[in-house]
Nucleic acid binder design. Structure first.
Length: 420
RNA sequence: GCGGCCAUGGUGUAGAGGCAACACAGCAGAUUGUGGAUCUGUUAUCAGGGGUUCAAUUCCCCUUGGCCGCCCCA
């Protein structure tokens, strides 16, 4: 094969689009129920927007961005995530302020240059929300609840919500200091990766799955124990509100996210049906990002859902919806009949019935076979005999009965309405 | 960026150092213009390049791609 889709990219074929459409419809519905409005931003932005917001030392920025120079010498990057572009758009169009709440949702392709594997692609799709303008813990819970409701609507069970707090600008540095101190005299017992992490991003050591490290991590200080008063109070309120709303969750004090802009609450929704990449949804608070990108300080919470992963979970346990059937299949024999059929098809469609016909000049038998295969409910047959009589055969495919009716669009539509 | 496994018709799979097999799908046909069943026929330079050999699709190497894992993330 000469041309194939590029590494890490995938065609979503007609057999799969119904699942996608269902998910997309659910997203629209649920986000709408919470009064979030859709926003669409370009797929590329100036590179600096991402390096500034996500953090220069993160994996995303240091090695996963699709960055290129355009003909005008600008450094552009295909968006690896959507939070920064949404903030940029909000600032550019004055959509947010500290005094008002702005609730937005988005859906679309993201790009990250990584080795593809289960649940990971170079072009993948996310649907997400961002709520600006309040530090209210209840807003955190609203956002989490929205994700939970969405998954429920889609019919997913046995998902787990993990939450944690990574602290703010004030208490996080303190915690990192504490953590580094705890690990320094134990470095030799840590795995090689963790030794690197300890220097690059000490928080990530908490996330290590290696057994040897686990035993050390167990006794390590947890972020929740080092929160400042505001962060602690905020987190307690989030948890209390989750309880009140009866949203099931697990406090996971090893949950650390890889994007620098997160502050306070972080959460993930994980599924055990996904293999190594088990998070379907990730999010949290980012109270400093708007200011860092040049706006007034406006706190925010949001999440992103990985649509491929969602499809990955659903694919197995939800029956794929039946493909749409066509109402009428027109069978014409001969050029003259074909012309008339073409015209009739157009009239039938105008009345709101779907119609299709043959473009191969096949025999009656083959055309009938085709009509059967595509699931046509009715077939119209126009051959020599009918043509001479000014009639057309109207055949009900499931009954196997047929009758001759007058060959004009109005009569056909009338009969269709009657048989609906 | 690193590691493991893999690469045969449209699809899913066999196969063996010397004629590439089977199933499904597709198309055509089984007496004139009637679908779903059955039967018949038909569909492959065995991913690309190099090497070993009288002979490679089979063995070896490289490349590319796929799947999975690490890292990280959705």
């Amino acid at each position: 094969m000469k041309y194939t889709s590029q590494r890490g990219t995938k065609d979503i074929l007609p057999s799969e689009t119904p699942v996608w459409q269902r998910i997309e419809a659910s997203c629209r519905r649920i986000f709408g129920l919470y009064n979030y409005a859709e926003i669409r931003t370009p797929v590329f932005e100036q590179t600096e927007l991402f390096s500034r917001s996500i953090g220069t030392d993160t994996d995303i920025v240091s090695k996963e961005m699709y960055t290129f120079e355009d003909r005008g010498g600008r450094s552009l990057t295909l968006r690896p995530e959507e939070t920064a572009p949404v903030v940029r758009a909000c600032l550019q169009h004055n959509l947010i302020s500290p005094e008002n709440i702005t609730k937005l949702w988005y859906m679309g392709p993201m790009f990250r240059y990584e080795r593809p594997q289960a649940g990971r692609y170079r072009q993948f799709h996310q649907a997400g929300v961002e709520a600006f303008g309040s530090t209210d813990p209840m807003l955190d819970v609203e956002v989490i609840d929205m994700a939970v409701q969405l998954f429920r609507e889609i019919g997913l069970t046995d998902l787990e919500v993990d939450i944690n707090s990574v602290g703010c600008k004030k208490c996080r540095p303190e915690f990192i200091k504490k953590l580094t101190k705890y690990f320094t005299d134990k470095t030799s017992d840590l795995c090689d990766d963790c030794k690197k992490r300890l220097v690059k991003n000490p928080l990530r050591v908490l996330d290590c799955k290696i057994q040897g490290c686990q035993s050390i991590i167990k006794a390590a200080p947890a972020p929740v124990d080092s929160l400042c008063r505001e962060c602690e109070e905020h987190f307690e309120n989030v948890v209390a509100c989750m309880d009140e709303q009866k949203i099931k969750y697990k406090i996971n004090n090893r949950l650390v996210r890889g994007l620098d802009y997160y502050t306070g609450t972080t959460f993930e929704v994980v599924s055990d049906k996904l293999g190594a990449q088990n998070a379907v949804c990730g999010g949290g608070r980012y109270d400093d990002l708007v200011k860092e990108l040049g706006g007034k300080p406006v706190p925010a919470v949001g999440f992103a859902i990985g649509l491929e992963r969602l499809v990955g979970i659903i694919g197995s346990d939800v029956q794929s919806p039946k493909s749409d059937v066509v109402d009428v299949y027109l069978i014409a024999i001969g050029e003259k009949a074909k012309n008339i059929a073409f015209d009739l098809a157009s009239g039938i469609r105008k009345a709101g019935f779907s119609a299709d016909m043959d473009f191969h000049g096949k025999k009656l038998k083959s055309q009938l076979k085709l009509a059967d295969r595509i699931g046509a409910r009715f077939v119209l047959i126009l051959g020599e005999d009918e043509l001479n009589k000014g009639k057309i055969v109207f055949r009900d495919m499931s009954e196997g009965k047929q009758e001759e009716i007058k060959c004009d669009a109005a009569t056909i539509v009338e009969v269709l309405e009657k048989n609906k």
